[in-house]
Computed example of a mutant assay.
Amino acid sequence: MEIKLASVDSVIVYFDNKISLDVSFNVKQYLEEVKKLEGIIDIVPSYTSILITYDIFIYSYDQIVSVLEKIKVNKISSSDNKIVEIPVYYGEEVGLDLKRISEEKNLSIKEIIDIHSSGSYRVYAIGFAPGFAYMGEVDKRININRLENPRKSIPKNSLAIANEQTAIYPQSSPGGWNIIGKTTIEMFDKSLSSLCPVNVGDEVKFYSISKEEFLKQGGVL
């Protein structure tokens, strides 16, 4: 673990330079300990590090480093993390890139859906936008590059893949990921203390639902 100055009131704690499940677990465990500290203004976890903003009227740089260095993380297993199941409608009217992926990968749309929904995905980081959870890893058979020309607007709750990652757009926004479906789950929920139904280290499983069930749950085509 290494702690470096980020700005006048923030530091970055680095755990490793490689993405792995062990590092993801360490980030999550360390994050929970930092939340208990007084004078912490903001915490932003990523794949292998955590950006921590602190109150400079409580800590000097040397003091915050000393406090953070005393936090110890133990190796934990996947059983210590929650499993979150998310319903997805993989219809072509919401899966804007399903047909193209099918052609590029020489797979039927059903095969793409089966492959994606049969996997489990670890939440490695939450960023880009509130509630945007980066999850991996996507099966190599449907691993596909980002769009060369990003869309100006991707509908809220769209499920997407890019290379080895998958994610849900929590709000309508520009983006270059490949859209394969849509969920009814709110990924940015102000009623939750964490603002998001998933946290770093959690395991996410997607399951396919019909168009009728999607609409019944409040989904929007």
Rank of each mutant, 00 (worst) to 15 (best):
V44Q: 05
I71Y: 01
E137G: 11
Y14P: 01
W177Y: 04
N178T: 11
F206P: 00
I52E: 02
L195H: 06
E2Q: 15
S158M: 08
G127R: 10
F25N: 01
E38D: 07
S46Y: 07
K182H: 14
F57D: 15
N106I: 08
G119S: 15
N74W: 02
E111W: 08
I168E: 02
I142F: 10
I126S: 00
I113D: 02
I161K: 01
E164D: 12
Q171I: 13
V94R: 04
S46K: 08
R151S: 13
F214D: 00
I12G: 06
Y54K: 13
I58Y: 15
I112G: 05
Y54V: 15
R146F: 13
Y169W: 14
N143W: 13
Q165A: 09
I179Q: 02
S153I: 15
S7V: 10
V204S: 04
K35H: 01
G176H: 11
E92S: 14
L68D: 01
V123S: 00
D55F: 02
K36I: 11
E38Y: 04
S10L: 04
P150W: 09
Y54H: 13
G131C: 09
S117C: 02
K182F: 10
I56R: 13
N106M: 07
S49I: 00
H116G: 09
E148T: 10
S79A: 15
I115M: 13
R146I: 14
S191C: 07
G218Y: 11
Y30F: 11
V198A: 01
S117P: 04
G175P: 01
S173A: 06
E148R: 07
T166H: 01
G218K: 06
A160C: 02
V27S: 00
N17A: 13
Y134N: 04
V198Q: 04
K216C: 12
D189V: 07
V65N: 05
S208G: 04
G176A: 07
L68Y: 02
W177K: 06
F214C: 05
L192K: 15
D202G: 02
I71C: 01
E186H: 08
D9L: 09
G219P: 03
H116T: 05
Q29A: 07
T166P: 00
I19N: 00
L215C: 11
S210W: 12
P87H: 14
M187N: 12
K18T: 05
D139K: 04
V23C: 00
K75C: 13
V138H: 14
A160Q: 08
